[in-house]
Amino acid sequence: MNNQNKDQNAEIISNNKSSDKKTSKNIVEIKNLKKSFDHGKITALNGLNLEIKEGEFVSIIGPSGSGKSTLLNMIGALDKADVGDITVSGIDLIRKKDLSDFRSQEIGFIFQLHNLIPNLSVLENVEVPMFESKISGKEMRKRALELLDYVELSDKIKRKPTELSGGERQRVAIARALANKPSIILADEPTGSLDSKTGQVILQRLKELHEKENVTLIMVTHDMNVASLADRTIEVLDGQVQN
């Protein structure tokens, strides 16, 4: 993809108004966040505090069970905290009841296991998140095609996910995550199920997304090499951010 195309894609990918790389504005503010499972027997987050600036690329590392995925789920409003405050993109996730609009408009998820819908084509998978937006079917298709062009899968739009390689599937997942022009991309071990070469391609694409489009990128990983690509690395241990 040439630079001219990339510039054209800037508007397609993100709705971030600011062209500055990073602002002083916090996009994520977490105070004393606690979350436990199994009736309090398992503590996932134990009074966690965290601030992430708009446009920042943050990687979250930590051993298994440290609470890093729980933290990502909290930021993405997939789970509710027991105690504490969490504000993302100015929205109080503790007090706001229906968070589907928040997830649809502000967040783009990339999972370790791509989680594409098997009976839908590549194009349809990218269209799925746009059902909740107010755009027409024609616009939906146009945007999905543009995003698939961005991830260089224009020639495979009619394929089913099973007909793609692991890297291609993850590129579809990236296009899907960008469907509603989110402010934040949350990536949970995005290269965890890929070989190192394919993983590098995906990371490169994510980094490029962050650098060129000023999208806030929060990535959970247990790989230090992967984490080192970020502007900042946060280590989570026993449900708390380590200083």
Binding site: D101, I107, F131
Partner: peptide
């Protein structure tokens, strides 16, 4: 779960 994560309402 994925549909909910991408913002589908209940």
């Amino acid at each position: 779960g994925v549909l909910k994560a991408v913002g589908w309402k209940n």
